[in-house]
């Protein structure tokens, strides 16, 4: 798949938040073989997290900094500017959160931040609600993709409203990346079957009983979902339809 003219190696993107060690980060990325890896931008301290960057750079997977935790357009723009400076990438997963309980996007602030960042030359990938009208607004201001949520961040409830995801897919002509809510591999496959171009998973992998095992499952699920989408599912029918021929049955 391509975003803003860049070819990405996989339709699976992974977040690193929640893993207990850098060794675990390394193992998960190796198993997932992701197209992008997300990171957050936080104050430095003496805990040696600088080596996270070394660990991720060694994998060769491109980094996608996020603006997680930002509550206003101004904060998000500032965080994106810091990320560009620290990581040398103008790509940003833009998050502007409305409240701490639901972690749902504040779409008014989001569109404003997106517009500002696009003007500053960023490649903006906004985390947004599964709403085709908002998605169109984000594309109008120049976003390179849209990232609708399946269900709230970290909830593991899967794709709460598949029709809304299909509506977003139908509304925009940029890549659609399902972000948030995925709990297990079948839900990642479903996102691709619904027409998403990629899936971002974090908690579903990092807090699984076996993160490396789940990372591998997600890799295969996303591949399966993309192949199924391409192959075309059968229409749903009310009545049954036999697949074995009715002619030539034995007589009793």
């Amino acid at each position: 798949m391509q975003i803003a003219g860049e070819q990405l190696a996989s339709r699976l993107w992974v977040g690193t938040g929640g893993l207990p060690s850098l060794a675990a980060v390394r193992a998960v990325v190796a198993a997932a073989e992701p197209g992008l890896v997300t990171v957050s931008m936080r104050r430095t301290s003496d805990t040696g997290e600088g080596s996270l960057l070394d660990t991720l750079r060694a994998t060769g997977v491109p980094l996608l900094p996020n603006t997680a935790g930002c509550r206003t357009a101004r904060e998000a723009v500032f965080t994106a500017e810091l990320a560009r400076e620290a990581l040398g990438t103008s790509w940003v997963k833009l998050e502007v959160i409305g409240d701490e309980t639901t972690l749902l996007p504040d779409v008014v602030e989001l569109v404003e931040a997106a517009e500002t960042l696009v003007r500053q030359g960023f490649t903006v990938l906004p985390y947004t609600t599964a709403d085709p009208v908002v998605a169109l607004r984000l594309v109008d201001v120049g976003c390179a993709a849209v990232m609708p949520l399946g269900s709230p961040i970290g909830s593991g409830r899967g794709i709460a409203d598949p029709h809304a995801i299909e509506a977003v897919r139908a509304a925009v002509d940029v890549p659609v990346v399902l972000d948030a809510g995925i709990g297990t591999a079948s839900e990642a496959a479903q996102a691709l079957e619904l027409g998403c171009d990629a899936v971002l998973v974090a908690t579903a992998v990092t807090r699984a009983e076996d993160p490396v095992g789940m990372a591998g499952a997600m890799r295969l699920a996303v591949e399966a979902g993309a192949l199924a989408r391409q192959a075309g599912r059968i229409p749903r029918r009310t009545a049954a339809r036999a697949s074995s021929p009715t002619r030539g049955r034995v007589a009793l």
Binding site: G15, T16, G17, G18, L19, V25, T38, V39, S40, M41, R42, R43, T44, E49, G50, L52, L53, L56, L63, P65, N66, A68, L82, A83, A86, L87, I153, G154, L200, A202, T203, T206
Partner: peptide, 8 residues
Amino acid sequence: VVTAHQGG
């Protein structure tokens, strides 16, 4: 002074 941390 900020840098990359684990995140989603």
